[in-house]
């Protein structure tokens, strides 16, 4: 499981935010576009692409894209 691909998959859930914005250190809650639907899309993407179920409080605890990546990796 590679972080580069994960970041790309993560970024694809955002419609109005350029992919170049996303790095491992991106604090995704601070992005203008961040919202409940994006949150759900991220959870759905992780379920679909990585076969991992993320809970809301887990996503809430994660601050950066790298945190989410590590969370998913730990559940695989």
């Amino acid at each position: 499981m590679e972080i580069k691909e994960f970041i790309q998959n993560f970024a694809e859930q955002f419609e109005d935010t350029d992919a170049s914005v996303f790095t491992p250190d991106t604090v995704f809650h601070d992005l203008d576009e961040w919202g409940s639907l994006i949150g759900l899309s991220i959870i759905a993407m992780i379920d679909d692409e990585y076969g991992v179920t993320i809970k809301g409080d887990e996503l809430r605890t994660a601050k950066t894209v790298a945190d989410v990546f590590e969370l998913v990796k730990s559940k695989k």
Partner: peptide
């Protein structure tokens, strides 16, 4: 913003 994870919304 921390609660915009989708779960609270659903």
């Amino acid at each position: 913003p921390a609660y915009r994870d989708g779960f609270a919304w659903i």
